[in-house]
């Protein structure tokens, strides 16, 4: 789980506890007092269960109490409110969700750059069905490192002197400094198919400078 998911879970749990506590304060104590179920519930929800409980306890008990139907209506409204909260937070979470960090993903396959390139140049459509959109850990010799305005490309040797496996990395990758031409390196990324080279996006360096 990412940090965002934890925060969301935490907020949802907090909301749930607040709603349950408020409901019990309003139902068990508020109903029997002048403040009533409704006001007690609203106060507890907005100000928090403890302050709501205090205010509810300060209210005096009236002569008659018969609010069963209203209680049911408010229970339903309460459920709606909670459901709304969950849906809104899910919506916000989905809207702001970023792509999963490759470093957090388990590699589906491990292969050498030469084998991956050869598999693709032998049979592209078959290789697509095996490798495309998979998290792949590739071992290979660095034949080129190129910095660009929008990131960094490391080309791994495909064993033919010209083409190989092209990996795009973020400039912030801490292991990048250790990456040097002709070194063997292990890179994890998502295979998106083949143009001239096999293309891996969102790559991270797993292990640098293996001579």
């Amino acid at each position: 789980m990412t940090t965002n998911q934890y925060i969301l879970l935490f907020i949802s749990a907090g909301l749930l506890i607040r709603v349950i506590l408020s409901y019990f304060i309003a139902k068990k104590i508020g109903t029997g007092r002048n403040i009533g179920y409704k006001n007690s519930l609203i106060l507890s929800l907005i100000l928090g269960a403890i302050i709501g409980l205090g205010i509810t306890l300060l209210s005096k008990k009236p002569e008659t109490t018969n609010r069963k139907r209203r209680d049911v209506v408010f229970a339903i409204l309460l459920f709606g409110f909670f459901l709304g909260c969950v849906l809104v937070s899910y919506g916000l979470f989905e809207y702001f969700r970023t792509n999963a960090k490759t470093a957090d993903l388990e590699a589906d396959l491990k292969i050498s750059a030469i084998d991956l390139y050869n598999a693709y140049s032998d049979n592209e459509s078959q290789s697509d069905s095996i490798y495309r959109m998979q998290v792949i850990e590739v071992t290979g010799k660095i034949s080129e490192i190129k910095k660009d305005t929008s990131g960094i490309i490391i080309l791994l040797d495909g064993g033919n002197g010209m083409f190989g496996v092209s990996c795009s990395l973020q400039e912030t990758d801490k292991e990048l400094k250790k990456a040097e031409k002709d070194n063997t390196i292990i890179i994890k990324g998502i295979c998106t198919g083949m143009l001239m080279d096999v293309v891996l996006t969102r790559c991270v360096i797993v292990q640098p400078e293996k001579k």
């Binding site: 809207y95 969700r97 970023t98 795009s168 083949m194 996006t201």
Partner: peptide
């Protein structure tokens, strides 16, 4: 490759 387009939000 269309799948290699990267967007800031998933």
């Amino acid at each position: 490759l269309m799948k290699a387009f990267e967007f800031d939000r998933a």
